[in-house]
Computed example of a mutant assay.
Amino acid sequence: MALKVGDKIPNFKTKDHQGKDFDSQKWVGQKPLVIYFYPKDNTPGCTAQACSFRDQYEDFTDLGAEVIGISSDSEQSHQKFIAEYRLPFILLSDHNKIIRKLFGVKNDYLGLISGRTTYVVDKSGVIAFIFDSTSAVTHIPKALEAIKNLI
Score class of each variant (00 low, 15 high):
residue 110 L to Q: 02
residue 30 Q to C: 04
residue 48 A to N: 03
residue 147 I to C: 09
residue 29 G to Y: 03
residue 141 P to H: 11
residue 145 E to I: 15
residue 23 D to F: 01
residue 38 Y to A: 00
residue 81 F to I: 09
residue 117 T to Q: 03
residue 101 K to L: 11
residue 106 K to E: 13
residue 5 V to K: 01
residue 144 L to W: 03
residue 143 A to V: 13
residue 145 E to Q: 13
residue 42 N to R: 11
residue 29 G to R: 06
residue 129 F to T: 14
residue 104 G to F: 07
residue 17 H to F: 14
residue 39 P to H: 07
residue 26 K to L: 10
residue 121 V to P: 09
residue 136 A to V: 15
residue 2 A to S: 08
residue 44 P to Q: 00
residue 35 I to P: 05
residue 74 S to D: 12
residue 128 A to E: 15
residue 39 P to C: 00
residue 70 I to V: 15
residue 8 K to I: 14
residue 23 D to V: 10
residue 118 T to I: 07
residue 90 I to T: 13
residue 20 K to Y: 06
residue 62 D to R: 10
residue 104 G to R: 02
residue 130 I to T: 14
residue 22 F to V: 14
residue 136 A to M: 11
residue 17 H to T: 14
residue 54 R to Q: 00
residue 51 C to T: 02
residue 55 D to K: 01
residue 4 K to G: 13
residue 49 Q to P: 00
residue 143 A to Y: 05
residue 8 K to D: 10
residue 71 S to C: 12
residue 149 N to D: 13
residue 10 P to K: 06
residue 6 G to W: 01
residue 36 Y to G: 07
residue 18 Q to N: 08
residue 47 T to Q: 04
residue 116 R to P: 04
residue 85 Y to L: 02
residue 94 D to N: 06
residue 133 S to G: 13
residue 108 D to Q: 12
residue 64 G to I: 15
residue 126 V to T: 15
residue 2 A to K: 06
residue 26 K to I: 05
residue 73 D to W: 10
residue 130 I to E: 10
residue 46 C to Q: 00
residue 117 T to L: 02
residue 76 Q to K: 09
residue 9 I to L: 03
residue 128 A to G: 15
residue 124 S to G: 14
residue 68 I to L: 12
residue 133 S to V: 13
residue 23 D to A: 13
residue 83 A to S: 11
residue 136 A to C: 14
residue 139 H to C: 13
residue 71 S to K: 07
residue 40 K to L: 15
residue 84 E to N: 09
residue 97 K to Y: 00
residue 106 K to G: 13
residue 105 V to F: 02
residue 123 K to Y: 11
residue 8 K to Q: 14
residue 71 S to Q: 07
residue 95 H to D: 05
residue 72 S to F: 09
residue 62 D to E: 10
residue 140 I to E: 10
residue 96 N to R: 02
residue 70 I to N: 06
residue 43 T to N: 07
residue 115 G to N: 02
residue 77 S to W: 06
residue 44 P to V: 08
residue 98 I to H: 01
residue 102 L to A: 11
residue 144 L to R: 01
residue 7 D to L: 09
residue 128 A to H: 10
residue 48 A to M: 04
residue 35 I to W: 04
residue 113 I to R: 00
residue 43 T to L: 12
residue 45 G to S: 04
residue 102 L to G: 05
residue 29 G to L: 04
residue 57 Y to R: 00
residue 135 S to D: 03
residue 148 K to F: 04
residue 67 V to A: 12
residue 14 T to P: 01
residue 138 T to E: 08
residue 69 G to F: 05
